[in-house]
Design a protein around this nucleic acid. Structure first.
Lengths: 231, 231
DNA sequence: CACGGTCTTTGCGCCAACGCAATTAACCAG
DNA sequence: CTGGTTAATTGCGTTGGCGCAAAGACCGTG
């Protein structure tokens, strides 16, 4: 109880849920804190996997870039999330880049120590399997959306999903609580910033959303849900 | 060595690699064999997770279907692959359906026993994490392709990938060793069977491929690779 | 070997979304 | 307050790929 606050944070993360305190203490002893101001990069695509992080506060973006510079956003990470899942799977290089989009605090530790601890305490490994399963399902869903839905619906789905994981109630509706540009939305939905801009403008007129520079407020979630689900 | 052949098969699968023989024997005791003729379904989407399988021989297709009947193919499974990863992650329902596309033999066992054994032997859990990580990366790649590439390149990439995992050298080129219709390719690449048909016809003329009813032979893999990579 | 079902091919018209370009708006630093 | 930078909007022409439809090829079966 009167434990270091970092141990509490670890204990509440999905990866370390249900893990005995003494094991957490052990991990904590090897860990450190690190701040990443908005815009700073945690690691680049193809970087060697040396360190593993858990988000304490803030928001980060995972991207993947092609040889010819095209970029897509794989997902956003928030408090409690694992940063650099390759450290879990034993991968040698990071398959994507991670950048802070808001000032963030992370708890870090050497990847080797995590792997070693995980192999001695199957509860961590079991949690890791569950966690990877959830992320896998997320991607399945997005793949299906991308393959079968038109742009407008994809944007609606994406906004609703973001509002689930980072929504903040305000007087004008649910606000996505981190900077989110048209370009970002385009990279999440497989379209261009132009099309996103046009779509949001359309919704703005209808009063569904209230958006500005790197900011989106969903005024009528129900209306957006209807766009997302209509046949 | 003079072990049951099924134990050998388990030992060679990615999930059970490096697991002590006595553990495999234990699992084997709870397992059974089952045949699925081509076309038969192993489980449906949303089915409760009760049984877990490893492919011995054959080929199966994992699909996901939307409410309005749109379908996409998530992946194909072959010898050594895990069928029903939800049994690993502890999921309650299968997120996709699995159907045999060729006559297949599977080794099955109760999901609960697998989970229990996995939690006692972290090597299995570690393997499961690695395995899920690989599948996750596959999806990341496909998501990126779908989001950034034109149809022709996506089809080329898909065929090349299929030839990696199920290619068979023949006099006329590398043949995809299981029935694969235009519709199937469309569901893998997020397009329509019409567009796939037109694309293959085009390649046929150029001599890149040699395709027929539910059959594709890649005559010039290098040419296809060029289509896939050209800027 | 003829029949019905399942795939595949191909023509044609159409439109959602892209790509380009130019303008306007918002933010920041000094 | 000003100048510079980054983000957003919007108009316009183009087009890749969809959707529909009809015909042809292939296959298993009785």
């Amino acid at each position: 109880m009167a434990e270091s606050p970092d141990i509490d944070i670890l204990a509440r993360s999905e990866l370390f849920r249900g893990v005995p305190v003494e094991v957490l203490r052990e991990l904590h002893a090897a860990s450190f804190r690190r701040k990443f101001p908005a815009g700073e990069t945690v690691f680049q695509q193809e970087d060697a996997v040396t360190t593993f992080y858990i988000v304490v506060v803030g928001r980060l973006r995972v991207t993947q870039t092609t040889l010819d510079g095209q970029q897509i956003i794989i997902r956003y990470l928030g408090p409690g999330d694992v940063v650099g899942y390759a450290a879990l799977t034993g991968g040698a290089a990071h398959p994507g880049a991670v950048t802070a989009v808001d000032d963030s605090h992370l708890i870090g530790m050497p990847a080797a120590i995590l792997r070693e601890t995980m192999s001695r305490h199957s509860r961590i490994a079991m949690n890791a399997v569950t966690l990877m399963g959830e992320r896998y399902q997320d991607l399945q869903l997005r793949l299906r959306e991308l393959a079968t839905e038109k742009v407008e619906r994809r944007i609606a789905h994406t906004l609703l999903r973001l509002s689930q994981q980072a929504g903040r109630r305000t007087a004008r509706g649910v606000e996505i609580a981190f900077p989110l540009s048209r370009q970002d939305l385009a990279e999440m939905t497989g379209t261009t910033l132009h099309t996103v801009s046009r779509t949001l403008s359309g919704w703005e007129v209808k009063g569904f959303v209230d958006s500005g520079r790197r900011r989106v407020i969903i005024a009528k979630p129900e209306a957006l849900a209807e766009v997302a689900e209509e046949v």
